[in-house]
């Protein structure tokens, strides 16, 4: 059935090409206009900030590519040297770095997937679902952020020991599969980024609550989920306190293995730095993959206000 409507042909506000041109024109104006132009002061400040931020990583490369004796010289070396791969080999020889990296990938990956999934679910519930006691529950969740991790270590270790999970990876994965910060972060994002009408449209279209979550909420929340994933992965990768209690050097994560490298009467700074560099590389890879999403998420949040 075809229905010819009066004026249908003239409904277009403007041709598509012109619409795109218009948008492009505005974007060009924004970038090239007086207000959008960065001056020398901005460039200087940004360059200095970038240098200060990147220096620790650069110093890791420099220190990791020299011998201990070269590092002890005055002035210290400021350029990378040829000993990097020797130091890598020494680090891999002195501590199970390879196994530690694999363990850390598994642990951080599992924690990241779990945290993002559970925090998004809980954040959605707290942001958009109506249920009795919602405010009180949220206050309880946020309140747990005020309890120091150290307080819960002994009971947690007793539970882990009872489960015979000491020195097992699940001992460091399960206790951190959801975080109060993540729940609060996702809730705040969804409150502002997810209009109620979108959920109502889903309900009218016949979607169940879980289908609404999966097909509507998750795509909308993706930028925030990427940010949370990045933060969670970094935190899990750098976590030292609980893994060194729950794991041993026989089955370590990267940080536990690096602690092993640093022990001894004369710590070999160059080997430690080479090991640290090895342990940092996966994090750099993750950042490269998620970087675009993260910037998108930050921008989207800014635009939505």
């Amino acid at each position: 059935m075809t229905i010819t409507l009066p004026g249908t042909g003239t409904t277009e506000v403007r041709p598509v090409g012109r619409a795109a041109d218009g948008a492009g024109g505005r974007a060009r104006k924004g970038r090239g206009g007086k207000s959008g132009k960065a001056g020398p002061v901005t460039y200087t400040v940004l360059t200095l900030t970038a240098l200060v931020s990147i220096f620790p990583l650069y110093w890791t490369v420099v220190a990791g590519s020299h011998t201990n004796a070269e590092l002890a010289a005055s002035p210290p070396p400021f350029l990378p040297n040829a000993s990097l791969f020797d130091n890598f080999a020494a680090a891999l020889d002195q501590a199970p770095i390879g196994k530690a990296i694999l363990n850390s990938v598994l642990v951080s990956g599992a924690i990241t997937v779990g945290t993002v999934l559970f925090c998004t679910l809980a954040g959605f519930a707290f942001a958009k679902l109506q249920f009795r006691g919602r405010g009180l529950l949220l206050a309880l969740v946020v309140g747990t952020m005020m309890v120091p991790t150290q307080l819960s270590v002994i009971p947690l270790f007793m539970m882990i020991a009872d489960l015979q999970w000491v020195n097992q990876l699940q001992a460091v994965i399960l206790p951190t599969l959801v975080s109060a910060f993540g729940v609060f972060f996702m809730r705040q994002y969804l409150i502002s980024a997810l209009p109620n009408e979108l959920l109502e449209a889903g309900r009218v279209d016949g979607a169940s609550t879980f289908r609404i979550f999966w097909s509507i909420v998750v795509p909308v929340a993706r930028p925030a989920m990427a940010v949370l994933a990045m933060l969670t992965f970094l935190t899990a990768w750098n976590e030292f306190f609980w893994p060194i209690i729950a794991l041993t050097t026989a089955n370590p994560t990267v940080q536990v293995a690096l602690a092993g490298l640093g022990s001894g009467y004369v710590p070999q700074q160059s080997v430690i730095m080479a090991g640290t560099l090895l342990g940092t590389l996966p994090v750099l890879v993750v950042f490269t993959i998620l970087g675009k999403q993260i910037v998108g998420g930050i921008m989207q949040g800014a635009v939505k206000g």
Partner: peptide, 13 residues
């Protein structure tokens, strides 16, 4: 029923 919302509520993705 089918509903047309004031903001259209189109799924953005």
């Amino acid at each position: 029923i089918a509903m047309v919302f004031q903001s259209y509520a189109l799924y953005p993705h």
